[in-house]
Amino acid sequence: MMYQKGEMVPTRNAYGQALIELGEQTEDVVVFEADISKSTRTDGFARKFPERFFNIGVAEQNEMAIAAGAAMCGKIPFVSTYAVFASMRACEQIRTFVAYPKLNVNICPSHGGVTSANDGATHQATEDLGIIRTIPGMTVLMPADVVTTRMAVHQAAAMDGPVYIRLTRGGVPVLYDESVDFQIGKAISLQEGKDITLIAIGDMVCKALVAAEELAKEGLDTTVLDMHTIKPIDEEAIVKAAVQTGSIVTVEDHQIYGGLGSAVAEVLVEKHPVAMERIGLKNTFAESGEYEELLNKYGMDVPSIVQAAKRVISRKK
């Protein structure tokens, strides 16, 4: 399936597509599901490879540990559920039975951040990146669009060790075409400027790009980095941006604690401190509502990014 730039597509769709491609490529790929295959988009794989698809029911801990057992037999398991359940209900199984034995389990949960919108806070994963990032040896990412999500899933399957790929429920614009140089662990520079850097992840990358356009109208020249991998994070790209622009705003659909903002701040404070602000949920749960309404109410929309950018620029030394 080819995607057109600008088209709105949920990244979970690309996951479903990549799974079928992988299933065709290798017999070793097996998929574990927790009763939401239509939503996580594993249903296509299930129809095509029913013998390699295991619906474990609404039992995410069991699902994760079974996947670990499959990996112990040399398989390449993919585990699907919602991000809030993968990262918290099955957190210990990820930590002790996937990451500790360094198993090749690929956890690809949907409904990252507030993209589950109207479902409300119980189904919004707003702490998962922070939780999973602290676990040794985990690779953690959230691609910005379907094109890079598909690439991320293929690269994760080929990589040894556990990977967590956070997906969106709602549509996000297609930002890239197939020529994009996407590599796990390497940020993508979408545009370069001299006044400020916006470092964004996942569904917020497109918001950062729109914010950069707004800033340009006011004569501000903006670098935008798609930091799809928050662990291992691309330190070089962060330091380079800090040197070039002297100010950084991180933009994530997640608590400001533990996720992208924290990961970037950790690099900056050790390598090259500059003025910085973090866009994200600020010590609060969100609620039911339309996705855009939530971004607006909780300070994660384009105007919030623009204002944060201006504040940070004014603090530059």
Binding site: N62, A68, M72, C73, P77
Partner: peptide, 29 residues
């Protein structure tokens, strides 16, 4: 710890997990 000790088929210690891991192995068998 399956990575440190030859012959250990699965890391264990946190209770309640071994049967699920065994299911994963049995399913793959």
């Amino acid at each position: 710890d399956m990575r440190k000790t030859p012959g250990i088929d699965s890391t264990t210690g946190s209770l309640g997990n071994g049967l699920s891991i065994g299911i994963g192995m049995a399913l793959m068998g």
